[in-house]
């Protein structure tokens, strides 16, 4: 079991690093709340001026519930290690990993989950409060099986998003300075994953295209599991699709990384 300890230790160090920056994390939570407020006002205005009570298949309450949950889920699956990877490659620090008897991918994965954990616990706590208040004020309680299924799909969603961004981060082997590219990719993927609006807002043709891509399985799908938009059969099918995309992205990542690290030039003294 000794080989395992190198990864549990990486996890632990990631965890400690996250705790080191508590204030930063709290600020990021506040900044996450900001767009949620804006959207709440926006949807309130839209529903008040609409002649129908159901817009894009969502009632006003469902829409607000979606907005809250999407803000939180998007925050949970969010990565951030892509900037570290870019730095490692750009400044040649990737070399210090190449000479060690340890894989870069499992190391990044463990450290990422370690860094994720404190925030995850906190956001799940907030989510419980949101769900309890929704139940108390609006009387919409999710079923027990929906909550369990939600947690499973959420875990898969975190892994999937990690892999998607691990693929994107390999671009750093070809293009040196890609900070803005990452920012662009992040905004687009958040939109495509349903992290801002429900995907129905964009229309059926868009949805058809989205069904062929992995993004909605990181945010939109877990929320739809929780809010009851998807039945039990649909939940199981969705999980299978998530697993398929995880396998596909993992394959793609390993191909891209093998190809890219062959190009690595280890700059600097």
């Amino acid at each position: 079991m000794r080989w395992l300890s190198k990864y549990t230790k990486a996890f632990e160090l990631g965890f400690q690093t996250a705790l080191e920056y508590r204030a930063n994390f709290l600020l990021s939570l506040i900044s996450a709340a900001y767009p949620i407020f804006i959207q709440t006002f926006m949807w309130t205005a839209i529903y008040q001026n609409s002649t129908e009570s159901v817009v894009y298949g969502y009632t006003y309450r469902q829409m607000l519930a979606y907005t809250f949950l999407a803000g939180l889920v998007a925050r949970i699956v969010r990565t951030g290690f892509e900037y570290e990877i870019m730095d490692d490659i750009k400044n040649g620090r990737f070399s210090t990993f190449l000479v060690k008897p340890q894989g870069y991918f499992p190391y990044r994965l463990c450290s990422f989950f370690g860094q994720k954990l404190p925030g995850l616990v906190m956001i799940l706590g907030i989510m419980v409060i949101v769900l309890l208040s929704l139940t108390a004020f609006w009387g919409v309680a999710p079923q027990f099986y929906q909550v369990v299924a939600f947690l499973v799909t959420l875990a898969l969603a975190v892994i999937l998003n990690f892999l998607i961004f691990y693929c994107f981060s390999s671009v750093a082997f070809w293009i040196i300075e890609i900070g803005f590219l990452f920012e662009g990719i992040r905004i687009v993927t958040i939109l495509l994953s349903g992290g801002i609006f429900p995907l129905e807002v964009f229309g059926t043709r868009f949805l058809q295209v989205m069904n062929l891509l992995p993004f909605q399985y990181t945010v939109s799908y877990p929320i739809n599991v929780l809010n009851g938009k998807i039945d039990a059969a649909g939940i199981a099918q969705g999980m299978l699709v998530q697993c398929f995309w995880i396998a596909a992205c993992w394959l793609l990542a390993s191909v891209l990384w093998r190809w890219g690290s062959g190009r690595y030039v280890a700059v600097g003294g």
Partner: peptide
């Protein structure tokens, strides 16, 4: 050892990184 590259975790005490190396090198 590359004088211009570091392997230690910047935000943590050095003994944490050293322990990580203990694990990596078994």
């Amino acid at each position: 050892v590359m004088g211009q590259k570091n392997q230690l975790w910047w935000d943590l005490p050095a003994n944490e990184s050293l322990f990580l190396n203990k694990c990596i090198y078994e």
